[in-house]
């Protein structure tokens, strides 16, 4: 793989990979480590993909696995506080909702992130996280319920299509 090809792949996926990693580990340094590792794996393995969707799923899956490795590690048994410096809030609502999401357990954070921010379907998330569709649906249900409890009101998600499209277009 040429350097140019690697750079193109990095440019295409680095935001998605980094943000998903950040959703898991909640701090920039570890998210960057994971991002770095995911791309090194991508460049080294250089798997053949049937289409773009396939490649995206691969990238997300590797990111999820790396993040899980990190969360399982001994040092992560203590809670890692959310880095305030990583987020800039433009309204109190942003602060409230973002914190509520980031206070969820990691697996719920990830599902919320993949579903609402990245806009993946339940089936796609199941493939990425190694869970069944039913399990993903259950986790989404629980995550919403937890958020409702934290925020004191129902979360208005409007499903995931708008955010996904907007984000993907901007990244592309």
């Amino acid at each position: 793989m040429t350097k140019l090809q690697m750079e193109r792949i990095y440019d295409k996926y680095h935001l998605s990979v980094f943000r998903l990693a950040f959703a898991y580990c909640k701090n920039r340094a570890d998210a960057e480590d994971i991002t770095s590792d995911v791309f090194l794996k991508r460049f080294e393995a250089d798997p053949e993909f049937t289409d773009e969707q396939h490649e995206t799923a691969w990238m997300m899956r590797v990111t999820v696995n790396r993040a899980k490795d990190l969360l399982r590690s001994f040092r992560y048994r203590f809670s890692v506080p959310l880095e305030e410096a990583s987020a800039v809030y433009e309204s109190p609502e942003e602060h409230t909702v973002y914190h509520a999401v980031m206070e969820l357990p990691a697996k719920y954070r990830a599902v919320i992130h993949l579903y609402y921010f990245e806009g993946y379907s339940v089936a796609e998330i199941g493939e990425m996280t190694g869970r069944s569709e039913t399990a993903v649906q259950t986790q989404l249900y629980r995550a919403r319920k937890m958020l409702k409890k934290k925020l004191g009101e129902e979360l208005n998600g409007n499903e995931n299509s708008g955010i996904l499209q907007g984000h993907r277009e901007s990244e592309a």
């Binding site: 750079e7 990095y10 440019d11 680095h14 935001l15 980094f18 943000r19 950040f22 959703a23 920039r28 998210a31 960057e32 991002t35 770095s36 990583s86 987020a87 800039v88 809030y89 433009e90 309204s91 609502e93 942003e94 602060h95 409230t96 909702v97 973002y98 999401v101 919320i112 992130h113 609402y116 921010f117 925020l151 009101e153 979360l155 208005n156 998600g157 409007n158 955010i163 984000h167 901007s170």
Partner: peptide
């Protein structure tokens, strides 16, 4: 409350520009 608030903040979360070089 809308989940879009989470998405707005997340869109501002970006890695170190030097990460690519590393």
């Amino acid at each position: 409350m809308k989940i879009q608030e989470y998405c707005k903040v997340t869109e501002r979360v970006k890695p170190d520009p030097q990460l690519k070089a590393r």
